[in-house]
Amino acid sequence: MNGIPALVHDVMTRRVVALRGGAAFKDIVRVMQDWHVSALPVLDDTGRVVGVVSEADLLGEQEDGDADTAGIGRHGRTVRLIEAGKADAVTAAGLMTAPAVTVAPDATLARAARLMARTRFKRLPVVGPDGRLRGIVSRSDLLKVFLREDEEIAEEVRREVVVRLFGTQAATVRVEVRRGVVTLTGRVRETALIPLAARLAHAVAGVVDVRCALTGLPRRPALAPDLAGPGVPAPHRARTP
């Protein structure tokens, strides 16, 4: 992640357990318990991801239901349990959510986080251009980026933001990072670039917040005619008769 934006392939889990469409209900539950996961990708015969089976799919979560046949699930939802007698007859192909919501290995962590927030999924299969499974990225994986050292973050902000934006003026900008919070101070000539500097700094992997105190260069006061500098003739004044 040093020097470039953090991508999904930097943090994803590469050792992944997956299901075939014919996997039975009880086998799915057993795999989830053995691997301590809440969702599993489902693959077709060519190894492409065609869906995902989650705990919610197995439990049949719904917003409301018969209080006599339903239990209380996560987030206050009621849960309709599939009848035990039918469990062995239910397969991953029938239970899965399809098509699967996936993310590419070269997607940014910000994109993966937005996708999780929009879909409310905790884990996303990572697939290549051929649709084959490359790994799994979870919410906890996305948080790994915030373990970067302050010094590493500061160096990247200087190199990728300050130097690129302000060039020869970069020496007038001070970058400090403490617990992931970036502080930018100093004076720059191109004040129009200050908001962009703050946005780009915020996009650096591991940055928690940005406090931008950059300002423009001080303006020189206009001199009155009588205060003209040495060698500068004072303006001619007409004599009164």
Rank of each mutant, 00 (worst) to 15 (best):
Val37Leu: 09
Val208Asn: 02
Pro241Arg: 15
Arg139Thr: 05
Asp44Arg: 10
Leu95Lys: 14
His236Leu: 13
Asp45Phe: 13
Met116Val: 02
Ala238Asp: 06
Ala100Gln: 01
Pro225Ala: 09
Val181Tyr: 04
Val31Gly: 01
Ala93Lys: 11
Leu43Asn: 14
Ala39Trp: 06
Arg132Pro: 13
Gly135Pro: 02
Lys26Leu: 08
Val31Asp: 00
Ala18Trp: 03
Asp150Met: 00
Leu227Gln: 09
Asp64Pro: 04
Ala213Cys: 14
Asn2Arg: 06
Pro233Cys: 15
Thr102Glu: 12
Arg132Asn: 14
Glu55Gly: 07
Pro218Lys: 05
Pro241Thr: 03
Leu184Phe: 10
Thr215Asn: 11
Val126Met: 04
Thr108Ser: 08
Gly85Asn: 11
Thr13Ile: 02
Val90Leu: 08
Asp150Phe: 00
Met1Thr: 05
Ala154Lys: 04
Val79Pro: 08
Asp150Tyr: 00
Thr168Lys: 15
Glu160Lys: 13
Asp45Thr: 11
Ala198Gln: 10
Thr183Leu: 11
Gln169Cys: 15
Ala107Phe: 05
Gly76Ala: 09
Val210Gln: 00
Arg189Ile: 15
Pro230Gln: 11
Gly94Met: 02
Gly60Cys: 05
Arg164Trp: 08
Ala112Phe: 01
Ala203Asp: 04
Lys122Trp: 12
Leu59Arg: 06
Ala107Asp: 10
Leu81Pro: 14
Trp35Pro: 06
Val8Tyr: 01
Ala154Tyr: 03
Arg179Glu: 09
Arg189Gln: 12
Arg120Leu: 14
Gly167Trp: 02
Ile153Thr: 01
Met12Val: 03
Val204Glu: 01
Glu152Lys: 12
Thr191Ala: 07
Glu61Ser: 05
Arg80Tyr: 05
Asp106Cys: 07
Leu43Tyr: 13
Thr91Val: 00
Arg189Val: 12
Arg15Tyr: 05
Val145Glu: 01
Ala112Cys: 08
Gly47Leu: 13
Leu165Trp: 12
Leu124Gly: 03
Thr46Ala: 13
Ala238Val: 10
Gly186Phe: 05
Ala70Met: 03
Leu40Val: 03
Thr215Gln: 15
Ser54Asn: 15
Leu59Met: 10
Val182Glu: 00
Glu190Ser: 15
Ala197Glu: 05
Glu151Lys: 08
Val161Lys: 09
Leu81Trp: 12
